[in-house]
Simulated scan of single mutants.
Amino acid sequence: MITCPTNVTSNNYVGFTSGIIQVRTDHEANVATVTWDPPIVTENVSRFNVTSSPYKSGDEIPISTIHVITFTATESSGDTDTCNFVISVIDIEDPICTIEPPSYMGSVEMGQQNSTINYIITVRDNVQVSSIKTDCSFIDIGNSGQEYIVDRAIEEIDSTGTFPIGETMVLFSVVDNASPNGNEGTCSFGVTISG
């Protein structure tokens, strides 16, 4: 008879709910490293072989709602016994955005009320960034207006903005593709335009 391990560990342990062990992804990765003690086999035979499938202790397990880890003990006679446990790897890591330059000071040309500046937004995530957006109406993110669809793990986005005289703080929100709800991060930069 085989008994599944009860000591399943990860540096990213989240909890145990409805028979499912939940762990979050490793930092800046789309997998979680999970370890467990060997299963306990109690048989009246001296020789048996134990395998685990599809993962073994110490493996990097990808994001998924459910991974069923099955242990099989096989006696030398060919008799087998199995047990299993369930792991869910979730992404709760917020995406990151940065802006170059982080702030801008400039002035308008003679007779003008606005100044156009160029900047680069870098977005990244351990899995995949879905989109970045702002409520600032005079921002153009990657020639797409106020919202830009990313759909990759990292991207540098050339952007522009036409700013009025005065101080403006622009806030961006970036969302990843985590399920069921995307994780959200923010970044901002300040612009000062003198007349």
Score class of each variant (00 low, 15 high):
V170N: 01
S144H: 12
S159F: 07
T162I: 07
S179C: 03
C136W: 05
V108P: 02
C83D: 10
P5M: 08
F189V: 00
F16Q: 07
M105P: 01
Y13I: 06
V8Q: 06
V86S: 12
N49I: 10
F172P: 01
T98S: 14
M1P: 08
I193V: 13
S194C: 04
I117S: 00
D158A: 12
K56S: 13
C136N: 14
G182V: 05
R47S: 14
T42S: 10
D176I: 04
N49V: 12
Y104F: 14
E109T: 10
V127G: 07
R24M: 11
F138Q: 03
S188L: 06
I66W: 07
F163G: 00
V68L: 09
P54C: 12
V123A: 03
T9A: 12
E167W: 06
I61A: 07
S77T: 10
I66L: 15
V14G: 02
S64A: 15
P5D: 04
I90H: 05
R24G: 09
E93P: 02
S173A: 13
G145C: 03
D176L: 06
V175M: 15
D94H: 14
P38Y: 05
F71W: 04
M110Q: 12
Q113L: 13
E100Y: 13
D176R: 02
C187V: 05
T98G: 03
N30H: 09
G185L: 06
I21D: 13
P38M: 08
G111R: 10
Y104Q: 05
E156W: 01
G142K: 02
E100C: 03
M1F: 06
E28M: 11
E109Q: 13
T9Y: 08
R47L: 14
Q22E: 13
D176Q: 04
I69E: 01
